[in-house]
Amino acid sequence: MLKTRGFPNRLGIQGWAFGGRWGPERYLYTLHRITGLGLLLYFLLHILLTSSRALGMEAWEQAMGAVTAPIFTFGEYLVFVAFAFHALNGIRLVLVELGVGVGKPIEPVYPYRTSLNVQRPLAICAGIVALVLIVLGTLDFFILD
């Protein structure tokens, strides 16, 4: 039996990053965390920067002028990609939490079957919609704009 030494999260930060053999959904969880933290960091700065519009046109244009370099555009693009993934994966998580698309409970009889395989189509659908959004965003950011 594994020794937890009183710490349920035995692996700490390592436990967040490495999913072992838990399957693709476990890595979607890691990506959900990374994108969530990235979006939160951006959002906190975004509130402060865009609040400049309350001070009028000059303050707004000065604030927006400070973030026109290509590195900021690319950063914004990453925020859009993170949003697309986090939103679609979030919808998947809500559906799974509500019991949608996870199949019916079955007797735990050998050979055991994991419900993760039943959920896989949901993850694939969410991934496809996220990809479509990312493609549209890429078009808007770098080709049509």
Binding site: E76, F80, F83, A87, G90, I91, V94, L136, G137, L139, D140, F141, L144, D145
Partner: peptide, 19 residues
């Protein structure tokens, strides 16, 4: 879910304006 709706709208306005 609230964020999904309104951030979706915000992203559509800001980053899908050409599409």
């Amino acid at each position: 879910l609230v964020v999904l709706v309104f951030l979706g709208l915000h992203m559509t306005i800001m980053h899908l304006d050409e599409v």
